[in-house]
Design a protein around this nucleic acid. Structure first.
Length: 804
RNA sequence: GCCGGAGUGGCGGAAUUGGUAGACGCGCACGACUCAAAAUCGUGUGCCGAAAGGCAUUGAGGGUUCGAUUCCCUCCUCCGGCACCA
């Protein structure tokens, strides 16, 4: 066959236009017989071009989906843009260019770059969340949530960056600082819209067990939801007609309760403060207010508090114990109040600091001396055996918790409860570049949902991009006029927009609708394609996007719009590509652009290089030193297949063994997202045929199919030259034949006292006795068999081990 | 502090129902081709040895085993998550 070097640049352009012309990636969602929904998390269209990190995410994902396609599946891999968000707005503030203009420009650039990668995206189904065709459904979702009582408005604390003059999404707060400018984030009370994700806490937890997700991610969600079983205990207040409910997971320690502590902002503080304590309590609360959330929650600082002067009655033993407020009690967890005792580290330290008298009621059950614990020199926080606890003395902590809870319940002083750490989702943002919340207020200030017929509720354009600290939409004359025109004089629109995580919480459903304006999602298509077969994206979304999307799907199921309750059946996270050990970012100036590498070596080389770096899920530090190796590999593939493959060659046994071994290894590697070892196996095949004159056309074609998911352009070129019909990506993946993997001989390793001394070649069907006998005859083994053999071990097909 | 994950040549990494550690690639050295260089090809690449062979070795230390990168215990380092959640 012909011999000329492979020109990746020309070849890649040729095949990309051939694929486009053939509509190779367009999926007929209604007619497809073997649906496979392969999804990668859609990117944010930033002004910077795609960097190496994007490639590391998208290209291997595409290789995996190409492999699925060759398994005979109708693979649907759509792509879109998470286009609303703060960066575009900040860019507008800086340059005056409207976010809609900059976003559209960025999207166009990114589509061009993504196409260049050679991925199988079905662009006909593209979504971008900032288009009104899309965000009308974001607004529709809000109305559904509102209609079903899952959206409500209340005053709450939000992260506020004083420098950017805007609220920040949780993910943009890193260690208490603004991710963009490094300013300390403060808490600010604002009236906000929330979605009741907490109502789904248990279902979100239960659903995890059936998901094929990385266990680490499931664990993170589990911790985030934070289920905690315990008891609510009611403390009466002495001489007052008030009660204080507290939450505890250690009701077994109730007999040692020595004080009650409320959060400084607990609603009962004022009523519980005695006259002569008023001064110190107010001073303490004022002091608290001055501190930032970051300072207040600093673990290394000492716990502080002041007594209120009033007393609570321990419902277990009737003892009067002092009521305090303290900075270590959180208002937003449980009831914002705890009882303190000697069996909790924090309470122990607090009591010591303020000389509150403690008693102990739990001793370790491992028989260890508890002198120091009783003497309050040491704090014991484990489960153990109760004492000084009336008729519960002698019980274990576990038994006692059940019995004491039941006993308190009988007295009307307690009950078993479950607490979650998860908080409701704050969805409003004081930003411009987001989906307007579809709510209007009547002249009395009462909120009303905007009727669906007015959707999309358009984002006004007559807005200045100066950060004033107010929602930019308040400036829009058109917005207010529109509202009054439709709803009446004195009516006002909601000026806040929605968190961009709302936009991304259902996009996988909109990909199925191809811009359909009539309905949110077609139930039949949803039942057919959902849940997403394989979802690929970064682990940083573990407790944000991935939990929101699950919540929204559950809610939609309950509303009756979808069949499925979980959006993503399988999930894999790509690793992070760093440069110089640091995450790539514009501000650090360490962003690596793939463009020059792609221009020089082609997309196939670049994507294979990224895959060859190591396991997909590991990521790694960027270095271009090895790219040459892949370049060589590509040329070698071309040279060898073109010069060696020939018609009419009958393949010899060794080559058959080689190619079938390669099929096995490449298949297992790709299926397990280990593209690095898949490429290594292909390289070994080349090394194996290097010395051979020729290989059969059949073998060459098989190799080309194995290469196809990894190097889509090159393999099409090879396929064409080898006389293959159609596209190689439409072929059915080869299956290895175990018969060909069998060899006539096998290598048996011989060990003496665990040390390798020789290896022998024996016939594959040799008997154990014969193999052992042969092993004993090896010169280098004999040498070490000077003493009588105590034991002979034979591991079938692997080794013989002698013990002397 | 708590919960996960990981530590293997000069470098990226391979190998785990316990069974030849270092596949594959980069880099490096030498050689071929060349006036020369690049590219390409060949050989080598833990240590000692011409070789046969020997020795060491998977973060550190201990244990189980004929045999441990793999299992158990103690510790160190790095990465990720949570962080006063009662």
């Amino acid at each position: 066959m012909e011999k000329r070097p492979y020109d990746p640049i020309a070849s890649e352009a040729k095949w990309r236009s051939a694929w486009a012309k053939a509509g190779a990636y367009t999926v007929n969602l209604k007619k497809a017989k073997h649906p496979y929904y392969g999804l990668v998390m859609f990117p944010y269209p930033s002004g910077d071009k795609l960097h190496v990190g994007h490639w590391y995410n998208f290209a291997p994902a595409d290789s995996y989906f190409r492999y699925q396609r060759m398994q005979g599946k109708d693979v649907f891999t759509p792509m879109g843009f998470d286009a609303f968000g703060l960066p575009a707005e900040n860019y507008a503030i800086k340059t005056g260019i409207h976010p809609d203009i900059s976003t559209k420009k960025n999207v166009a650039t990114m589509i061009e770059q993504l196409t260049r990668m050679g991925c199988m995206y079905d662009w006909e189904k593209m979504v971008h969340t900032s288009s009104s065709e899309y965000y009308r459904w974001t607004q529709w979702l809000f109305l559904q949530m509102f209609g079903h009582g899952l959206a409500y408005k209340k005053k709450g604390m939000v992260n506020w960056c004083p420098s950017c003059q805007t609220v920040l999404a949780n993910e943009q707060v890193k260690e208490g600082k603004c991710d963009r400018c490094g300013t300390d984030v403060v808490q600010k009370p604002l009236e906000q819209w929330f979605w009741k994700i907490t109502q789904y806490a248990q279902r979100l937890l239960d659903g995890l067990k059936d998901l094929e997700w990385p266990s680490k991610t499931k664990l993170m969600q589990e911790h985030w939801i934070g289920r905690s079983e315990g008891a609510e205990v009611i403390f009466d207040v002495a001489h007052k007609d008030l009660t204080i409910p507290v939450f505890t997971t250690r009701v077994d320690t109730i007999f040692s309760a020595a004080f009650v502590v409320l959060a400084p902002d607990h609603p009962l503080v004022e009523q519980l403060t005695e006259e002569h304590h008023r001064g110190s309590v107010h001073a303490y609360i004022e002091d608290m207010k001055k501190k930032t959330e970051f300072e207040r929650t600093d673990l290394s600082k000492e716990k502080t508090g002041v007594p209120l002067g009033s007393f609570a009655v321990n419902p277990a033993n009737g003892k009067k114990i002092p009521i305090w407020i303290g900075d270590f009690v959180l208002a937003h967890y449980g009831h914002g109040a705890v009882f303190g005792d000697a069996h909790d580290d924090r309470d122990f330290i607090f009591a010591k600091r303020y000389n509150i008298l403690l008693t102990t009621t739990i001793k370790p059950d491992d028989g260890r001396d508890d002198g120091k614990i009783r003497a309050l020199e040491e704090c014991f926080t484990g489960d153990g055996i109760l004492y000084d606890s009336e008729h519960f003395s002698g019980l274990t902590s576990t038994e006692a918790r059940k019995k004491i809870t039941a006993w308190l319940e009988g007295k009307g002083k307690g009950r078993q409860v479950v607490q979650y750490r998860l908080k409701d989702w704050l969805v409003s943002r004081q930003r411009y570049w987001g989906a307007p919340i579809p709510v209007v207020y009547d002249p009395k200030g009462l909120p009303h949902p905007i009727p669906e017929k007015h959707l999309p509720w358009l984002l006004p354009t007559d807005v200045e991009f100066k950060p004033t600290g107010k929602s930019p939409l308040t400036e829009s004359k058109e917005f207010i006029e529109r509202t009054e025109k439709i709803f009446g004089k004195g009516w006002r629109p909601e000026f806040d927009t929605m968190d961009t995580f709302v936009c991304s919480s259902f996009y996988e459903l909109r990909y199925l609708m191809e811009g359909n304006k009539k309905s949110f999602v077609d139930r039949k298509l949803e039942a057919k394609w959902m849940p997403v077969s394989m979802y690929i994206g970064g682990p940083e979304h573990a407790t944000m996007h991935l939990i929101y999307a699950r919540f929204v799907m559950m809610a939609l199921k309950e509303f009756g719009f979808v069949e499925n309750e979980e959006p993503f059946k399988r999930l894999v996270h790509q690793g992070l590509i760093t440069n110089g050990g640091a995450k790539m970012s514009k501000s650090k100036g360490n962003v690596v652009s793939p463009d020059s590498f792609v221009a020089r070596h082609g997309s196939d080389v670049f994507r294979m290089y990224l895959m060859f770096m190591g396991p997909f899920t590991d990521g790694g530090d960027w270095s271009d030193t090895g790219i040459k190796g892949i370049d060589r590999f590509v040329q070698r593939v071309w040279d060898m297949l073109m010069s060696k493959s020939a018609k009419g060659v009958t393949e010899d046994k060794a080559t058959l063994t080689l190619i079938h071994g390669t099929i096995k290894r490449v298949t297992e590697s790709i299926a397990g997202f280990r593209f690095n070892t898949a490429i290594a196996a292909l390289m070994e095949f080349l090394n194996g045929i290097e010395k051979r004159e020729s290989i059969s056309l059949e073998t060459a074609k098989t190799f080309t199919m194995l290469l196809a998911p990894l190097a889509p352009h090159l393999s099409e070129e090879l396929w064409e030259h080898l006389g293959g019909k159609g596209f190689v990506m439409d072929q059915i993946w080869p299956v290895f034949d175990a018969e060909h993997l069998k060899s006539d001989t096998m290598t048996i390793v011989v060990q003496v006292n665990g040390k390798l001394r020789a290896s022998i070649e024996v016939a594959s069907d040799a008997e154990e006795a014969a193999i052992i006998a042969q092993a004993k005859e090896e010169e280098n083994v004999k040498k070490f068999l000077t003493e009588p053999i105590r034991k002979e071990i034979y591991v079938k097909g692997r080794l013989v081990s002698f013990v002397v």
